Amino acid sequence: MKLFIHKVLNWEYWPFGLVYFPIFFLWIYYSIQAKTIFFFNSANPKIKNGGFMNESKIEIYDLIPQQYYPKTLFVKANTSVTEVLKQLEIAQQNFPLILKPDMGLRGNGVKKVANLEELKDYHAKADFDFLIQDVIPFENEVGIFYVKLPNEAKGKITGIVSKEYLIVEGDGSSTIEELIKKTPRFELQLKSLQKEYKDKLLKVLLKGEKINLVPYGNHARGAKFIDSSHLISPKLTDVIETISKDISEFYFGRFDIMFNTFEELENGQNFSIVELNGSASEPTHIYDPKHSIFFAWKELARHITYMYKIGKYNNDRGFKFLSYKEGMKEYKAHNECLNKIVSI
């Protein structure tokens, strides 16, 4: 009951359909203008479906200069574990490693593995393409939303979100599980944490001892999102613009970036792109608990309008919208892959 009340009183936990219900009508309006509901693909013409559905992370990484993201190995479904280990040795990738599906679903299927046994366990369950990445050595993470009209010389940052990981701090007497239950945001993740950590949650942490239970900033996995849009600056905009110019025909999406210090990030130093998300990107600064649902609706409408305008301009340039038949084919393929990922 406590968790139910928490979810009701905090809109960030409301069902997707409820949060996006008013936005549905705006989408229909733009669909009528575009003569297709699948107008999003032209927002980023070189990313499959604009990055909205059935996209490939490795294909997106391949568009980004390699110095901006961690060493990444692509593993095709049904590749033998022997071959995977051989490729890891060639790539000189060492544990710990981050494993994640080539097509993402809000953090599902993402796992940090510490040794060979954990890698083999993940491999045995994965009947989908996945990536193996080096762990990024920086502690801080932000999501930076970038938009650019194709006829403009320079784009802009429309929002920044900072992320607080699911970290518990010991008091010398409580188990990790008891510490989790003290924070509703964390307790909502308890079932998945029990599945992953099992008896390890019964350990008592020393006073002041901290443990990061989910080492990636995903809202659906318990991270707290904080609106840090006040950090938008000309220097940071220049850094993001420099990266974006090296990504062919990229105009709309969110960079998830890990970094050492914000000053270094503004100077283009000591940072790494975790992921680049395309047309399906949310302006995730809306999920800051201080914001109302009305603020969220305003920001969602603003960004969907950007996406339509960019897509319309690119469509006029020759990057055609998906037809209904093409879009439904991609949508079905997307859902088939998601069902595999959710079941891992």
Rank of each mutant, 00 (worst) to 15 (best):
Q269P: 10
A77G: 07
F225S: 00
F52K: 04
G268Y: 08
R106Y: 12
K329C: 10
P70G: 03
V135L: 09
E118Y: 06
V239Y: 08
I47N: 02
W297R: 09
E55K: 05
T72Y: 09
K182F: 05
V81N: 08
I240S: 11
A333K: 14
T72G: 09
L73P: 01
S173Q: 06
L73S: 04
L213G: 04
E299R: 11
I157S: 12
L116Y: 06
M53C: 13
F16R: 11
E299N: 08
L213R: 05
I58K: 12
F255P: 06
G253S: 04
I60C: 03
I144W: 04
T183D: 07
F4H: 10
G170E: 14
N314H: 10
G318N: 07
E141G: 06
P15N: 00
E330M: 06
A333M: 14
N315Y: 09
E187L: 10
K207F: 11
N339S: 10
L97I: 13
T261N: 02
L338M: 14
D121I: 12
Y313R: 09
E178A: 11
K163N: 07
W11G: 05
L149V: 02
N314S: 08
Y122D: 00
I132D: 05
N267E: 15
E326W: 05
Y308F: 15
D102S: 05
V168E: 00
E187T: 11
K120S: 07
L26Q: 13
R254G: 03
Y29V: 08
N314L: 03
E169M: 09
K320V: 02
L201R: 04
F255M: 04
W11S: 14
Y29E: 12
G107P: 09
K207Y: 07
Y197F: 12
S192N: 03
